[in-house]
Amino acid sequence: MIKAVPKPLEEIIDLVKDFHKVLIVGCDGCVTVCEAGGLKEVQVLGSSLRLYFTQAGQRMDIDETSLTRQCDQEYLDQLKDRIDHYEAVVSLACGCGVQYLAERYHDKIVYPGVDTCFMGVDLERGVYAERCQACGKCILANTGGICPIARCSKRMLNGPCGGSEKGKCEVNPEIDCGWQLIYDRLKILGQLDRFEQPVDPKDWATSRDGGPRKIVREDLRL
């Protein structure tokens, strides 16, 4: 899922300080799972902002809501009767949700309330780790199910580099060397022969290098 972290309160205060009616919109999708932008976080942010502006003696109406998903017009539509009431919206969805909300209500000021970080997994509550960079042409079949693009700091396709030490990456001993993981897994799977085959340069056109991407699935469209 998409992983995000709440923006520092100071930053959000600074974004909304010139308004008097602000709506905070959460998302019940990914950001709820990583506890960055679900209904609970919306309520905490709302209350924190009210406390801040109250003690600062500034009038500020803050309302709170959360949508099933902000990356879907159908759910965004649910705001249509009330959104005009607000001068600005703070969206706690991932970057996709923030943008789609702004797109749907394109004359409304919409600010992001979280920093969207990566696609990853939950290692434990409060600990999330990146796993995929959406390169658009998955090569996991050849790399023991471990992604060298997301998990090697130099996204090498013929790793590991000379900096791999005791299973850790040269960048930082907190990072597992992706290629050590790949090697270990290929060994378990009895696929070490794949390791010696030089991997050709990758076609990055399906990655973000090809420009903003779009999927059109004719088989799904009406």
Binding site: T54, G57, M60
Partner: peptide
């Protein structure tokens, strides 16, 4: 919060 409320002439928070 209480200080601000007391000093304000009108209610400044409408908890929605």
């Amino acid at each position: 919060i209480n200080i601000a409320r007391e000093t304000a002439a009108r209610p400044i928070v409408e908890v929605a």
